[in-house]
Structures are given as C-alpha cells and as structure tokens.
C-alpha cells in the first residue's frame, strides 16, 4: 500500500515536496521532525516518546474495520426504538424514523427535516463518503484529490454532531422521570446509534488523508 518512493533523490524530481519524499518523519504527538533512518524499523520520538511513523499504520484496514462495524450497527440503530416514553397514556416506542414521521405529520416539518438530516443523512453519508475515500485510496485513484480532501474535512467536522440524538435521549431520560406519570428510557436503538456515530468517528480518525495524495506524489515523481 505504502508505495511512496523512499529514494533520497526523489525529492529533487517532485514538484511538491512531502516529508516522505524528503526522507523526513514527524512525531505523531509533538510534531518534532526527524531524519528517517533507512529500513522499516518502528521508530519513536526521543523527545515525547510517541511513535514516529511516515503514515498512520494500517490506516485503510483499520478504517475499513470501523466502517464495517458502523455499517453493521446502522441497521439496528434505525430499526430499533431509540426512546421509550411511558406515560399515563401508555408506552410509546419511537425509532428515529418514526420520530421524524411524527414530527412531519405534526406539522413541524423544519424540525423533522433537521432530525432527518442529522440522524439519517449525516451518518449514512459518512458511511458512503468514507467508503468512497477508502476505495479510491485503495485503487490509487488520482482523480480530484483536492475535492476528496475537502470531503474528508467535512467528515471530520460534521461527524460529532450526529451525537445530538443521543444527547437528547440521554437528557430526556435523566430529566423526565416522574414516577408513575411519565418516564423516558433509552431503547436498544440508542446504544446502536451511539455506537454507529462513535465507530464512524473512529473510522474517520483512522483514515490518513495523506494517502489521498500519495498516488499524486508518486505520479509527479515518475513524471
């Protein structure tokens, strides 16, 4: 996978020099820059002790693993109720989608749209975009690396906001607890949904965006 050229003379040939092409390594934690020794030995930063690696290790595989886990949990997260409302009128179990439908039918369609985007579109698009990025990296695609980097940025920024649903459920469960009259409990779907968001974030974090540019650098080096 890591097909970046290691030859020291390669840096002269590249248009845009990278740390890798210059034979340099930076510490993952304190960003101290070191000269890369020959060979493939694992390195550590003498200053802070963190690992010094040219790229995130096994980035694509880890990202895939988390992504697949998130996909597996995405199904129960959407099918199982995230919230059980017990009141004098009875027990109501709501899935994410039934909540959106309820909001829509209730007339508060802006809110319905908001929840739909935050809870369904965003997680789903995260899965799709990350899959696309991973596949494109694996296939050494050189197509539009700039846009793909932008997509990755968007993923990182937007990712944590999907947790809004879980926050709402957690807050309601803690606040609405009037014994005998009303109580709200998180359903099994909430845990799954939380896991989906967490796993997609981990997958995003495991992904090394520099991999998007490696094929580009390699091409430039060959050119």
């Amino acid at each position: 996978m890591l097909t970046a050229p290691e030859a020291p003379d390669a840096r002269l040939a590249t248009k845009t020099p990278t740390a890798l092409s210059l034979g340099l390594r930076s510490c993952g934690a304190c960003r101290a820059v070191y000269r890369a020794p020959p060979g493939d030995t694992p390195l550590a930063c003498p200053r802070c002790g963190a690992a010094v690696r040219p790229r995130k290790p096994d980035s694509v595989q880890r990202s895939w693993a988390y992504l697949l886990a998130a996909t597996a949990l995405y199904v129960p997260a959407n099918l199982l109720p995230v919230m059980e409302t017990r009141s004098l009128l009875g027990v109501q179990s709501d899935t994410i989608f039934s909540g959106i439908v309820y909001l829509w039918l209730d007339g508060s369609w802006p809110l319905a749209l908001l929840v739909f985007v935050a809870s369904i579109v965003v997680p789903l698009s995260k899965l799709v975009i990350l899959s696309y990025l991973l596949i494109s990296v694996q296939r050494q695609s050189r197509w539009n690396p700039k846009r793909r980097t932008a997509l990755y940025h968007a993923l990182e920024i937007v990712g944590r906001w999907s947790m809004l649903d879980i926050f709402v459920v957690t807050l309601l469960a803690a606040l609405v607890h009037i014994r005998g009259l009303a109580s709200i409990e998180p359903g099994p779907g909430a845990a799954a949904f939380g896991a989906v968001v967490a796993l997609t974030m981990m997958a995003t974090h495991s992904f090394d965006p520099r991999l998007i540019w490696d094929p580009v650098s390699a091409e430039e080096a060959r050119a």
Binding site: L22, V33, Y34, A44, C45, P46, A51
Partner: peptide, 21 residues
Amino acid sequence: SAGDESGASSGAPGLPAPRVK
C-alpha cells in the same frame, strides 16, 4: 499533513534521528 510538509522543506540534513522503538 499539509503544514508538516510545507515546514519540512529546508534544514533536513541537520535533523536528529528518531530512536528505534
């Protein structure tokens, strides 16, 4: 990563080597 790379364009020969993990 972009920042790392732009800052590493000069002074490479005098850099220390990391220790082996």
